[in-house]
Design a binder for these strands. Structure first.
Lengths: 142, 142
DNA sequence: CGGGATCCTTAACGATACTG
DNA sequence: CAGTATCGTTAAGGATCCCG
């Protein structure tokens, strides 16, 4: 990733003129930002992080992800299913039993997401102290 | 990351009772979700991806990140500065020259973010085809 | 040039009710 | 249980103006 312009998904012209100045060319590149938004989404991140080699029911995911509403979990899972990252299996029993698991594609993303979560865990103390120092400095300036 | 409940930042009780059932304990763990939101933010992601070993001016960042408003770029950079990920340098000249670069902490995050961006680049075609197949299936069901 | 402050609009999201 | 549909709210974010 060198010297790349990050084209907005909404401004996808596809002209050849700016091809050379960009890292991510216009024909494929304009999708990258949108996929990145999806994949780095607040809830998507947590779902993919939790679906590690195991299948989880809807209610299990909802319990594990504290604070997620039924609606947002549904929406998130639909998006991930549509993107081919999560497989949804409906067992025709009553009451219904719906299980979610990572697809092979989702599993490759899992590793990257996991490293992001681990980074956050490992550096949360540094970030917390950086914040308090910043707040202390800016408070002194007022 | 095994068997972890993902506690909401807004429901941070800090009790010891649920310590054992969580991967990320309550005292530190409730920060993780919030930091993850910040770090995986739409604009933060792009800023950190672009600031690779080089310093960039505000206007350069704004030009490189197509579609970002002045306000959001400012807000994003302030947050990243507060979190200790980005260093802001103001050169006292007129017109003002403000340069941004990654801190050592930010550089460690850069590698992870970079791998996320690379994953997206490498799998965008698979995702696109997964989407069209999903749309085709759901269209047939209506 | 690099913002800060303000206003205002959109869309994300939660809450609720209903269903197979 | 696992959704879908609808509605109402909030908050994120764009547009604009101004300033050192």
């Amino acid at each position: 990733m060198e010297e790349g312009t990050l084209k907005s998904p909404t401004h996808c012209t596809g002209t050849e003129a700016d091809y050379e100045v960009m890292q991510w060319d216009t024909r494929q590149g304009c999708e990258v930002r949108q996929i990145l938004d999806r994949v780095a989404d607040k809830w998507s991140l947590l779902v993919i992080a939790l679906l590690d080699r195991r299948t989880l029911r809807f209610s299990e995911l909802r319990r594990l992800i504290e604070g997620v509403s039924q609606r947002m979990l549904t929406v998130t899972l639909r998006q991930l299913e549509r993107d081919g990252l999560v497989k949804r299996t409906v067992h025709p029993v009553v009451p219904p039993r719906v299980e979610y698991e990572l697809t092979p594609l989702g599993a490759t993303l899992h590793d990257t997401i996991r490293s992001l979560v681990i980074w956050t865990e490992e550096h949360q103390v540094e970030i917390a102290s950086a914040r308090s120092e910043y707040d202390r400095r800016t408070a002194a300036a007022s």
